[in-house]
Design a protein around this nucleic acid. Structure first.
Ligand SMILES: [Zn+2]
Ligand SMILES: [Zn+2]
Ligand SMILES: [Zn+2]
Ligand SMILES: [Zn+2]
Lengths: 139, 139
DNA sequence: CTTGAATTGTTATATTATTACATAATGTAA
DNA sequence: TTACATTATGTAATAATATAACAATTCAAG
């Protein structure tokens, strides 16, 4: 009989543990990046009560590419692409902190060219573009 | 008489305060990014003995564009360009952590194109390219 | 000189993240 | 199945990173 290992997106989600699912779910329903201790606060009711439970889930989810860490904000955001392959690009509003992940397929051609021209042999990249979002522009 | 404000590089350096000069000097002579508390340790002998003295100097130097923070490493590195105008790009070795700042004039054309294509109106950018450095490749 | 902005020194505290160790659940192969 | 390795959990303690608050000082602009 074939292996029971998961192969598609759905099954991969199912293979997440309880804690990982809870954390991922929270991030997917958040409109903004969340900090580890704010996640902890939100999930006290779900039985998660120590920082380590959060950090462990975050680590795993990040390795799976389901979430990304916004380093300059010590915050985490659910991946909004189907697959980033560890290559990420974000816009970050300098005024309100609003973060959006860029569609990597829009970028990849340009980035590849950039890499070629600079003769780099890279394993992955993370691009952070700082902006003034629409809201902050008008105000 | 004209303002006594500093206008060229040299005078700008001279306008740094004692603490700022000490911290900048340490970073400029370091072959790798340094963490705030490691800077503090190194500078105990110079009379800097509280974290705030370090963080304040780092903040100021960063605003002046003389150093940059590598967010994913909570570390600071002296700027190796003459002027980044807050636009930065680095290669970071995934194995040993070695960090190098890219010459931004090599990049800017490509980046500008990238930004145009994605119809972004940005205020600045920070690009992190992860690599395996020469040392780590051969070992 | 006087004013206001920037810098400093110091102590305390907040925020973010990991170590250490014991236990339980899960997957794999003989 | 048993045995073994791998992965995940729970919990407490602690490390590492960064900021708040407040008083005192320096220094240039007017
Ligand atoms: Zn993504
Ligand atoms: Zn905004
Ligand atoms: Zn620079
Ligand atoms: Zn290396």
């Amino acid at each position: 009989m074939a292996s029971l290992k998961s192969h598609n997106k759905k099954e991969q989600d199912l293979s997440l543990t309880k804690n990982q699912k809870i954390v991922l779910n929270l991030l997917q329903n958040s409109s903004e990046p969340l900090k580890a201790y704010s996640i902890l606060d939100s999930l006290k009711t779900e039985g998660l009560k120590s920082p380590l439970q959060i950090y462990r889930a975050l680590d795993k989810l990040e390795k799976l590419g389901k979430i990304h860490k916004i380093e300059s904000k010590n915050s985490f955001i659910a991946c909004s692409n189907s697959n980033c392959a560890r290559n990420t690009a974000f816009t970050i509003c300098e005024s309100c902190g609003n973060v959006k992940e860029l569609k990597n397929n829009y970028l990849s051609d340009g980035v590849n060219e950039l890499i070629k021209k600079n003769k780099m042999s890279i394993t992955r990249y993370n691009l952070e573009f700082y902006v003034l979002c629409k809201n902050c522009k008008t105000n």
